[in-house]
Amino acid sequence: MKLKEAAKKEERLTGGHRLCSGCGAGTVVRLVMRASDNPAVVGCSTGCLEVSTTIYPYTAWEDSFIHNAFENVAATISGVESAYRSLRNQGKMDEDFDFIAIGGDGGSYDIGFQSLSGAMERGHDMVYLCYDNGAYMNTGIQRSSATPKGANTTTSPAGEVIPGKQQYRKELTDIMAAHNIPYVAQASPFKPQDLMKKAKKAFETEGPAFLNVLAPCPRGWRSKAEEGIELTKIAADTCFWPLFEVENGEWKLNYNPKAKKPITDWLEPQGRFKHLFKPENEGLIEEIQEHVDERWETILHRCGEE
């Protein structure tokens, strides 16, 4: 769908929410919701998006919305969707609804991981959207299992002895693909049409669909607000955040950079990686580059692009 055409549809997330200036979550959610053709029930795990969009007595959602707790948005939407199926089967309602559960990386990779896995396994007809900004940004930039190796966060600080986060990030998209659900995709807002297309597929999928979308966080990434979208392009060009989808078990690459860029292009503009450029951490950047390269090879192999 052309952006011009997409813009003709109703806005589902209004202005007046209180996400930070330049927050990628707002962009991601607007684009994803645009792909829904039905009234929706939106669930949100506790996090930036939730606290910013529904500060009583205001809601920025044009659709019905539910926030329950941090770790249970997938279970909560499971319940809503089950109610819908029950009421429809009993002939108590006949309207079509879309169901979407949204979590940050904390609510999806970590504390909400079990709830997410359970909901996907049970096969609820719902979309799960993870907006991954790579840390617990809402509580002040603590590390999550989505935080990239080397990142300076408030619980993985770059110190005299330890240079930021010690572990590589968890590949949640792969884990969701391993659930053998009908549709899994990794996307990025710098390609809005690709994101909307994936969201549309996700909404149209019968059964569970999972979207993992990189969302820039100027506060946590220590980057310039205006550069957020550009950074998500650099993430794809350096192969840090590949764009792919897994449709009924078939892997497909959606973006292959013409010239793969060095990982330093991704690290340098972000203050959270600043310490990596000290002479003593040189080896670490090499290590990260190797890891990205290996990961990229795996993705290419799975997508039959070798």
């Binding site: 029930v41 329950n68 249970n72 319940g79 109610a83 029950s86 359970g118």
Partner: peptide, 28 residues
């Protein structure tokens, strides 16, 4: 029964899904 039975993966999810179902407008 007309019930949708949700075989959740924990009691935390049991109560969470029940909250969702009840907020949706159903008897849960």
């Amino acid at each position: 029964v007309d019930t949708e039975y949700v075989t959740v993966e924990s009691e935390h999810s049991a109560m969470s899904a029940t909250v969702g179902a009840s907020a949706a407008g159903s008897r849960a």
